[in-house]
Design a binder for these strands. Structure first.
Lengths: 151, 151
DNA sequence: TTTTGTGCAAACGTTTTGCAATTAT
DNA sequence: ATAATTGCAAAACGTTTGCACAAAA
């Protein structure tokens, strides 16, 4: 692989989290993480790969998969599961919120909610689990796809 | 396929739901549904298949997959997504509750919660989505697996 | 009789893995 | 130097699909 001019900011919280876990803050990991933080599209591994490919031509899909798994394991991103497309969608926003998935167009959007924070607190306090992530998602058919369905 | 003596109770709510959707309440569909309602184990398709195989020797894994998809589409069961094992886990309990998944032993348990009903109400009222199911799941490491991990 | 559903096996697409080369520490 | 990480290709796995047969309407 040829080295690409993707800057590694060692001060970045992700970089620190990775180091704390004994992992290296590589350009690939930072790119994947940054992309997930910057987008609201809840992409699949394939979509992350396609989004980063232009600026990161040597990136491999396998590395994207590995990286996503790593980030989930560290609790830095959430794995939401499939949205009618057999591919896991990821969410860079780990703050408590609701996800809405359309099983028809496979899009996932966010919905703010008062209640989710309470939920998370409840789980943290009473479960006894070492929590890594959340998957608060309701699935169905979005307004746009309902219209199409009626035609 | 040979006919098996699995009774079809036409009064069963599932049977009625299936008919309303123009689908037939077959022994396979009722068996899968009943099993999911009766267990608290949040099984994968494979696990449903293995559980029903002894009493339903002609059942095929493909039918289990098809049936699970059908039931999800009708909102009769919930698709929770993977639990560290790349296989979708299903939940026969569609009442609002929290699911806790252990990414190490791949088990999913339930957690009662006051807040989840409020969540669901919020989504129903404000999303504009035609809702089919919920996926309220927190994942991490269960108490038992934490002990093993420490050893 | 017409339509729907099943079972089997093959196909598909997502995800994982082995290994040599590369990179960070 | 040493150990971790990448990229590629191949493999593996869960899931879906095509089709002939069976069952229900």
């Amino acid at each position: 692989m040829t080295t690409h001019p993707i800057p590694i900011d060692s001060q970045e919280p992700v970089a620190q989290s990775l180091r704390q876990a004994g992992l290296r803050p590589t350009p690939q990991r930072l790119s994947v993480y940054r992309y997930l933080k910057a987008t609201a599209s809840h992409p699949t591994a394939q979509q992350v790969y396609e989004a980063l490919a232009p600026e990161h031509p040597a990136l491999s899909l396998a590395t994207v998969y590995n990286t996503l798994e790593t980030l989930v394991g560290l609790g830095l991103i959430n794995a939401l599961g499939a949205a009618g497309d057999d591919a896991v969608h990821y969410d860079g926003d780990t703050r408590p919120h609701i996800n809405l998935a359309c099983m028809q167009c496979h899009r996932v959007i966010d919905l703010q909610s008062e209640s989710v924070s309470a939920l998370q607190a409840e789980v943290s306090a009473h479960s006894g689990y070492l929590l890594l992530g959340a998957r608060v998602l309701y699935y169905g058919v979005c307004p746009a796809c309902q219209v199409i369905r009626d035609e």
